[in-house]
Design a protein around this nucleic acid. Structure first.
Lengths: 141, 141
DNA sequence: TATTGTTATACTCTATAACTATA
DNA sequence: TATAGTTATAGAGTATAACAATA
């Protein structure tokens, strides 16, 4: 019998749960030729027309160096438009094709989120989300 | 004001929480020149002397192709010993240096796990862990 | 035939450093 | 000086394919 010394570690369970969820998400978004990070950026732009890359980075905790190629790929596919707001910032807006694709991505994400919630007793869902946010926001270290 | 369309998605919160936790873990284990995956493998071998690579892979959900170089690095550092049990499997055991390093890694991990638990009300910890396991084990898709 | 282990390769996300241009 | 953006590069985890050796 193999002993699992990580069995009681919530941090390890967190890692495994996240990996399992992300693998499923990636597989489903692949149908749209989108990666998880690309889909989340599209959703953010859709909800915030005119947002800049640096604002997206702060919201999603993505380094600006990593947003550049990501947004570049989406722009190359004509999913979004870049318009200068001043000499250095660019306002990002979804194109018509971008809006259609974002809507499909949102559907996929919401479907998957629903299956995740089904695994958690309804009365605990609020506390579960609060706990995850507390862990994610624990940047005092 | 920037709107966060992912605010209510537990899957996204899960991803962020895991990323935050893993970043801290990686930073602390770096002191021992260990990566998170290496530390978990050391812990598993420490609790299961003589375990084989394929058994580790099944326990930790790591593809065998990825375990090979990982175990190879640990063996190169003389942290573990590989002894053939039959013509194809190798029994893995910690060396004395491996045991010392594993103990230090375990301390680091347990410390960090404690700070994570502090963020969750005590009465909810059991349910939180159960929820994460349910999500990680939801392989029916 | 199935399993164990290995090598090679590629993809995704993330991290850092160095740089230009603008505020 | 600080901020926005870009480029280049590297590290880490993960995935697949192909293969040899063994059960």
């Amino acid at each position: 019998m193999v002993i699992d010394p990580l069995k009681e570690f919530p941090g390890y369970a967190l890692r495994r749960a996240s990996a399992a969820f992300m693998a499923k998400l990636a597989a489903r978004l692949a149908v749209l030729d989108l990666r998880p990070a690309e889909a989340t950026v599209l959703l953010v732009i859709g909800s915030n027309p005119g947002i800049t890359q640096s604002e997206i980075g702060r919201l999603l905790d993505i380094a600006s160096a990593n947003i550049a190629p990501l947004v570049g790929r989406l722009a190359d596919r004509d999913l979004l438009l870049r318009e200068p707001v001043d000499g250095r910032s660019h306002a990002l807006t979804l194109s018509e094709a971008g809006r259609r694709l974002t809507q499909k991505a949102r559907q996929i994400i919401e479907d998957l989120e629903s299956t995740l919630l089904e695994r958690i007793p309804q009365s605990l869902r609020g506390a579960f989300l609060a706990a995850l946010r507390a862990i994610a926001g624990a940047n005092s270290d």
